[in-house]
Design a binder for these strands. Structure first.
Lengths: 344, 344
DNA sequence: GTTAGCACTCATTTGAATAGAGTGCTAAGA
DNA sequence: TCTTAGCACTCTATTCAAATGAGTGCTAAC
């Protein structure tokens, strides 16, 4: 992989310009138009020579003879490494975002929503945010509220301070007093237990306590499962505006990915938990379904106890600089916010 | 408005066929193609004569000379009144839907989600479902849970059995015991109070109780406000597939409406609370922004205490029959489900 | 190493011709 | 009086060829 070192300063510059030009314009860029728009102080012929060198090295390609050049995945990769990898969000944008977060309720759902919205806006593409998943979820507290004679509302708070609810239908009428008593008893024992520990404990219970314990366990399990699949996304409108959409069913594919829920299962395998920000361009994506896209994604969370995913999904031709800086910033911000929510 | 009675049986039949043909095909329909596909036992010339009569009466129109006819808003209206207004969902579809609802958690959010999804699927268009709004919201119960020394989680259940949460930051450290005591005191007093009644009561409190009361009040108010604007929608993919989208920014407009949140404010003024199902076709819509669309919408809820909105949004050229039957059925189903949730 | 010049390629645009679907009107038939 | 065959006419959509234009690679001169 010493190819990049083979690139002369001028070649790098030309490659950079081609990519920038292509990302905003969406049309293949030729030697002539390039020198018209940028002061390179060389002739178009020289640029052509350099271009053909860049093409030989695999950074750009032509769709057909006598069309301009278009970046390859490798070209984007070079650009990302060279120019975009350590880009940061402008300070005033950071302030603006923090301000928005301050105005919203202190609540996981609101934050996820806002994060998705901010990301989509900055990167002008589809943003994806998952709720944080915990390695081992622990119960913090639960309450039982009698709604009707035989209908009970179970409210459960997990260690991450997220609130879950479930409606229980019981066979025999039960009073609020009985419910409260049971909840008190069980809360004392169940505090901070994991699902596995809960399961062990529930086995030894009897009567109402057993019933409640079983429902509690089921609810813990189901929330754990649903958190794994839930994806917040936003910003389809940006994709609809892009020329890639014209005719081809680009947006369709994307929507299918998002709506069908297969996104996570396609994305997760290629994410390494420890690295911060990761970028997958086109063919770099492990799964077939993601190959038409560019992905900029980062994990956020507290230590390794809770981690969520957040990123940008769009055509390969995407403003990587903006995407990277906003994803990186947002991941850090969300991690900070999570710390408030999550306390042992 | 005796025009409809002026329509001969054959005219009605031709109009019906034109609309059905146009709704599935999306292309203007001509006299020739009509008799080819349907056994009318008359010549195309006769159909042409009838068509020109229908056009004179305003039920169909031509885009330009020598193109087929396309239904006008009035044409759709006729069709809806005549053929679609009392259509019902096939029994096996009803069973299938009920089955899906039985498989999902007994929980408002899940129901709304599922309702939106089912509606979108049946009508093959964008579905819209709002959470039920209560005329006067009453507090049923609340809990306080200490998260950190100065961070408290407030969980609130309203009369409709929906759970709301808020994170409170308090100035001085407070223990779980103090919180529980305060919650017990206030729950006893506040049970079943409306926002207005709460406000009056909070004024007379002191110390921790006052603090809690104020937060409780604020949370009640904010949930009331947010419920007014929240809209679940689903099914954009169907709209993207339709020819109306080609070129024109039809889907863009729709997305703007949905995402911008202006949908409700545009839709609500024209909905009369008492009527069940309502249909607005194109220009019939009161607000400018809705004019390009057809809307089939119904209210659901219990008596007049809680009411939500649910419906289909799509191009004027939409399968009204399917839309109407599924919206009507779903409104009834949701009302039934609400009754379980909502008990005085 | 750079660049002007040139021949060549190929997608896109343009314009004209044509086919196709549809209409309205008229006159003849039932 | 209603129906319909026939026909002239109107428009859109399609097709096809030519023109356009952006771009390329190569070569020879600077």
């Amino acid at each position: 992989m010493s190819d990049e070192s083979e690139l002369s300063g001028r070649q790098r510059e030309i490659l950079r310009l081609i990519i920038q030009e292509y990302v905003v314009g969406g049309r293949a860029v030729g030697s002539q138009s390039l020198i018209e728009r940028h002061p390179l102080n060389v002739s178009s012929a020289t640029v052509r020579n350099e271009m053909s060198a860049l093409e030989r090295l695999g950074f750009i390609e032509q769709m057909h003879t006598s069309a301009g050049r278009v970046p390859t995945d490798r070209g984007y990769r070079f650009y990302v490494e060279e120019y975009a990898s350590d880009s940061a969000l402008p300070a005033n944008d950071q302030i603006m975002i923090r301000h928005q977060f301050r105005q919203v309720e202190t609540q996981l759902e609101s934050w996820l929503e806002l994060a998705a919205s901010v990301l989509a806006g900055f990167a002008r593409n589809v943003s994806v945010v998952t709720s944080p998943r915990t390695a081992v979820s622990r119960l913090r507290h639960f309450e039982l509220i009698s709604l009707q004679e035989r209908v009970v509302l179970l409210i459960m708070v997990t260690q991450e301070s997220t609130v879950h609810q479930a409606m229980l239908h019981v066979a025999e009428a039960v009073t609020q007093e009985e419910l409260s008593a049971s909840a008190d008893r069980l809360n004392a024992v169940f505090q901070n237990l994991t699902i596995a520990e809960l399961r062990a404990n529930v086995a030894g219970l009897a009567d109402l306590d057993k019933l409640v314990g079983e429902h509690l366990l089921a609810t813990m399990e189901s929330t754990q499962a649903s958190e794994r699949t839930e994806v917040h996304y936003q910003g389809i409108e940006h994709v609809l505006q892009q020329p890639e959409f014209g005719g081809s069913r680009f947006a369709q594919q994307l929507l299918e990915l998002l709506r069908g829920g297969s996104l996570l299962s396609e994305l997760l395998p290629q994410i390494s938990d420890r690295d911060g920000l990761q970028i997958f361009i086109g063919e770099e994506n492990a799964s077939e379904g993601l190959r038409p896209f560019g992905v900029v994604v980062a994990t956020y969370g507290v230590d390794n106890e809770v981690t969520g995913l957040l990123g940008i999904l769009g055509p390969r031709r995407m403003p990587y600089e903006r995407s990277i800086s906003s994803v990186r910033y947002m991941a850090r911000l969300m991690s900070d916010l999570m710390r408030d929510l999550y306390s042992a």
